[in-house]
Amino acid sequence: QGITQSMSRKGNSMDDGLMEDFFYLLKTEMFYAQEYKYHSLQELTQAIKEYIEYYNEERIKSRLKGLTPKEYWNQASINPVF
């Protein structure tokens, strides 16, 4: 599929932390105990795409001051923090 696995050194997983957090949320919020919803790989793929869109554009995050990731990054690009 053209996906390259992250190959961080052992004991140095800080670069993987954000993605591990995202995949944990994706699996717990849309997959675990809901596997029956997906009857084909295409349905699962579409559900993952929809979840990513929801996560970036609608899901409010308290650590982002109550904003969605998209709103937070748009705000940050307009008002850079120094």
Rank of each mutant, 00 (worst) to 15 (best):
K27A: 05
R59C: 07
Y36N: 03
F23M: 12
E71G: 09
T45W: 09
Q34S: 11
Y24N: 11
K37I: 06
Y55K: 03
L67M: 15
N56F: 11
T68A: 09
Y54V: 01
L44K: 02
I60D: 13
E20R: 08
F22C: 10
I52H: 12
E20L: 04
K65E: 14
L64R: 02
Y32F: 11
K70A: 05
A47W: 11
R63C: 11
L41K: 15
E43M: 11
E57N: 13
Y24E: 13
K49H: 07
Y51Q: 00
K49C: 03
F23D: 04
R63A: 06
H39P: 00
K37D: 10
N56L: 07
F23P: 02
M14C: 12
M14D: 09
E58H: 01
Q34M: 13
P69Q: 00
L64W: 00
F23I: 09
E20G: 01
P69S: 00
Y24Q: 08
R59P: 03
E53V: 10
M14I: 13
L25T: 13
E71K: 14
G17E: 00
Q46I: 08
S62A: 13
Q34L: 02
F22L: 15
L18V: 13
S40M: 03
T28D: 14
L44V: 05
P69W: 05
G17H: 03
L25E: 14
D15S: 12
N56H: 12
E53S: 14
K65R: 05
T68P: 01
Y51A: 05
L64A: 06
R63H: 13
Y38M: 07
A47D: 07
K37Y: 05
S62G: 04
Y38I: 07
E35D: 13
Y55S: 08
A33N: 13
E53Y: 13
Q46C: 05
K70E: 00
Q46N: 07
L26Y: 07
Q34P: 03
Y38V: 10
N56P: 09
F22A: 08
L67Y: 05
E29Q: 15
L41N: 14
T28P: 04
A33I: 03
K70N: 00
T68D: 07
D16A: 13
L26N: 00
L25G: 06
K37Q: 09
Y51C: 12
M14Y: 11
K27W: 02
Y36L: 00
I52F: 12
E57P: 03
S62F: 04
Y55T: 07
S62R: 10
I48F: 05
Y51T: 01
L26C: 04
Y32V: 09
N56E: 10
P69I: 03
Y36V: 10
L25Y: 03
E43K: 12
